[in-house]
């Protein structure tokens, strides 16, 4: 695993009544997310089938 890379477990973003939620595939936890989270997780597609990686430096 590369230290310079953030790797996410598979997740799915849901929208309900104007709010956004993230569902984590490994734990089944659901959490409301705000703009900042969306910034971090930003993807056009809300459906992630592969681990998503992003560079942090």
């Amino acid at each position: 695993m590369n230290n310079n890379t953030l790797e996410f477990y598979p997740f799915r973003i849901f929208s309900q009544n104007g709010k956004n939620y993230i569902f984590s595939g490994e734990m089944s936890g659901i959490f409301e997310i705000d703009k900042k989270h969306r910034q971090l997780l930003h993807r056009k597609e809300s459906h992630f089938q592969k681990p998503t990686t992003m560079s942090v430096n």
């Binding site: 477990y9 984590s24 490994e26 734990m27 936890g29 681990p51």
Partner: peptide, 9 residues
């Protein structure tokens, strides 16, 4: 919350 993958998790 185990959203982020680490070797430990």
């Amino acid at each position: 919350f185990r959203f982020i993958r680490t070797q430990e998790t």
